[in-house]
Nucleic acid binder design. Structure first.
Ligand SMILES: [Mn+2]
Ligand SMILES: [Mn+2]
Ligand SMILES: [Mn+2]
Ligand SMILES: [Mn+2]
Lengths: 217, 217
DNA sequence: AATAATTTTTAGTTTTGTCTAAATTTATTT
DNA sequence: AAATAAATTTAGACAAAACTAAAAATTATT
């Protein structure tokens, strides 16, 4: 598999988690920052290699083989992110782009050794699950903070958006994975939230709240 | 710089160390396992980017810019090799091919953090020097074992050939970096050597001896 | 100095992955 | 059910990096 093929497979995988039916050409083009015609070309190639099920105009799904390949790329991406944060002291907003490169290094042995070296982590620095060497992953039950009712207490488990700007916002407000948050009030007009975190009460917008994964304590 | 351009620059650098005059098209083609015509095409491109000095039929040399780029690639290659051996328990015969991939990961910050994490090593697992972040490298005075006179004692510093087959040969005969070797006898007919290592006397061919770097104790 | 051998370059293709523009299919409105 | 809009595919082109075969330049040999 080429670098480019791997990126397509990974994007189709991520889109499949959100909408389990056939994935649109345009959705893929959007994620990969290319044009629909380029996507069509690639889908034919991936179908030839039996990595995707593709029929003209009908969208695309991963085959078993494609799904496994995708999980292995995600595994590599997330293990490298853990390495960068845990061992090389990178911050959680710095690692994604680097992992985009590192995820294409082709060696099962390397990634399994890295996994072992890191102590077989189950989650990456953004709270996303890391598939094991067989593609198995632990699905933790999480909700978006925006869905939590007032007076409930939650613990922060992960982020939906892992862009540097969002992560830096969280750092600034001292919201980290593991933080305890109490929803004090929900504003019905704009769906903003008053939350209690680290004994301080702060106001966050709905956009923030709908990008934070939490679970009830 | 593309993956391929980086490989060419690195090969020209390695060839320059052996013969400091202009590097031949064919020599490059041999190292990179491509054809002379492909090399000519690439040399034009590298000259456009001011990474090499190139004039038709006159061979090629690295510019200052090209030399620095080459050293940074070699730095990355060798630091990754150290990482794989020191942290992930790879053997010295397993790491070269992996480092060929890892050396293309583009991040100064990553490589400088890795350098720090590894304790700023001066040499890679094969005894080759690691350029620092400015391209500076410590040149250790070493000779080939084949040039050592009988009855002299040396310490093993590195390998010239770092192919898995040669490295495995050394492992099998318990010759490692740091090993003490005494040259007992040199056979004038085939230039093979009798050496004393780990209190055992063994016979090694000239080919082996001329791929082992040593220094007199 | 002329010829032969070797090396290097040029010319013309190929493959991969991308693009634009046009054509086709599917979905949405009127 | 047409007509219109949107999504998707096809056709044709291009750049990167490789190739083969032929031409040109350099080097070695007679
Ligand atoms: Mn990431
Ligand atoms: Mn992540
Ligand atoms: Mn190496
Ligand atoms: Mn090495």
């Amino acid at each position: 598999m080429t670098y480019s093929e791997e990126n397509y497979i990974k994007v189709i995988y991520h889109l499949s988690l959100v909408s389990p039916k056939g994935i649109n050409t345009n959705a893929i083009a959007g994620m990969i920052e290319s044009k629909a015609s380029s996507v069509t070309d690639m889908l034919k190639k991936l179908a030839d290699k039996e990595l995707v099920n593709y029929q003209k105009y009908q969208g695309v799904t991963l085959t078993q083989k494609g799904l496994h390949a995708a999980k292995m790329i995600v595994r590599k991406h997330r293990l490298w992110e853990v390495f960068l944060v845990e061992k090389l002291d990178f911050t959680w907003d710095e690692v994604h782009d680097l992992a985009e490169e590192l995820e294409h290094i082709k060696s099962e042995k390397l990634i399994n050794r890295l996994d072992e070296y890191l102590g077989f982590p189950k989650e990456d620095p953004h709270g996303d699950p890391i598939p094991d060497r067989y593609g198995q992953l632990v699905k933790v039950d999480k909700q978006l903070l925006s869905e939590i009712l007032p007076s409930k207490k939650v613990i922060c488990l992960g982020v939906k958006d892992s862009s540097p700007s969002f992560l830096k916002y969280l750092d600034k407000h001292q919201i980290a994975l593991g933080s305890e948050i109490e929803v004090v009030n929900k504003e019905s007009f704009d769906h903003s939230l008053s939350i209690l975190i680290n004994n301080r009460q702060i106001l966050i917008s709905n956009k923030i709240a709908s990008n934070l994964y939490v679970k009830l304590i």
